[in-house]
Design a protein around this nucleic acid. Structure first.
Lengths: 208, 208
DNA sequence: AAACAACCTGAGTTCAGTTCAATTTGACTG
DNA sequence: CAGTCAAATTGAACTGAACTCAGGTTGTTT
């Protein structure tokens, strides 16, 4: 399972698309999307701001692309972590652990995704932006289904008490992703500890 | 305990500050802050856009005010719901239930708060905006402390197994507020059911 | 009814994001 | 290795929404 990388090998040899995405992740993740001037991203890459429009239709189009790539990665990583696991509780634990097995760049991407999630609610005027938005929305639903399906399988096997899988799945997912709103790599609590805490919480929540 | 109301009785009789806040909550909560033109809020109130600057220094200042008021209300409601309760599990249940005992306007305010939380991270250039931001930040910490303190009391009494209260508190709070990202009053699942589900989840998470 | 503060406005400014019309670069072909 | 062409880049101009300014109106107070 090839995870979605931010640098696409399909690009031409002198394309700066990957470099723009990397720079945008750094700036959007650091100071926030609204707080970052689109021209600053150009500066960081070492091109004029107009050159950005050769690769992205707009600043929002770049943001939506980052979000879509991160959602794709999250989904892929979930599938990678859970396939082969047959014991429901172990599958659940593996899914939670994989959600926290991320690089620093991926943490920034998760933060960008969470901070700008509401952008996916309303339609976009331009076509390419709308394409990315719809793709991202579908991936959100796919990730939600990843979790609800896992819970459903566990309930069907009798490993978890039967509850409304939709609400429970969203609650589990909501708790996990809420971490990216406050976690900073420089903070006092290491991510491994957070991961273990959340893993325990999720198991107790679901399995009684 | 007088809860923070969006319409402040301190205002002069012909002040439109309350009307602006109500209109802004409706528009920011409906289409999102970025998607809403500041002039649309003026139109809805029935004044020219320049008149808005008599009450708020900027569009962001208005948003920050809405967020601060909502945080104050959340905190007040938490205190109101938990005072007098001595049994830790019941206190926890009461706190969760109170978090979902909200009006439709308050739901919109919670949605606005959650969607724009990252605005509180970076300092603002203008003084009045910065004042609101700092006040909101402190209220966020106060609400976080409300939850961690509740958990600490429960652990001290032996009602909950001892765990890291900070991480656990943020996890509980994160799960609760994540509901406002997807819940819509028109949706299939009534809020009462969601509240019960989350209440159960929180109790199992914390109490083993 | 004079004074004054609260409230409001139309015209103009700013600035980040974006468009346009053209030019440069460099990989590939014959 | 010269010529070709799409990919990549650019400076200058445009746009639109947030905001400023220099006054004008309203209504309360004494």
């Amino acid at each position: 399972m090839a995870r979605a990388r931010i640098v696409d090998p399909e690009e031409g040899p002198r394309s700066k698309r990957g470099a723009i995405l990397v720079a945008a992740v750094e700036r959007f993740g650091g100071d926030g999307y609204e707080n970052t001037k689109w021209s600053e991203v150009a500066d960081r890459v070492g091109i004029g701001q107009t050159a950005l429009y050769h690769y992205f239709e707009s600043k929002a189009h770049c943001l939506l692309t980052i979000m879509r790539l991160e959602l794709q990665r999250s989904h892929d990583q979930f599938v990678e972590a859970t396939t082969g696991e047959t014991e429901p509780v172990e599958e659940l634990r593996a899914a939670v652990r994989s959600a926290f097995a991320v690089t620093e760049q991926e943490i920034r991407q998760m933060r960008i995704l969470q901070a700008n999630m509401s952008l996916l609610a309303n339609p976009r005027k331009s076509e390419r932006e709308e394409t990315e938005r719809v793709a991202a929305r579908q991936l959100v639903q796919m990730v939600e289904r990843d979790w609800t399906n896992l819970l459903m399988r566990g309930m069907a096997k009798g490993a978890f008490p039967v509850r409304d899988t939709h609400t429970l799945g969203l609650a589990v997912l909501g708790m996990i992703v809420s971490v990216w709103r406050w976690y900073r790599p420089t903070g006092a609590i290491p991510l491994s500890e957070i991961s273990e805490m959340i893993e325990g919480c999720v198991v107790r929540m679901v399995a009684e």
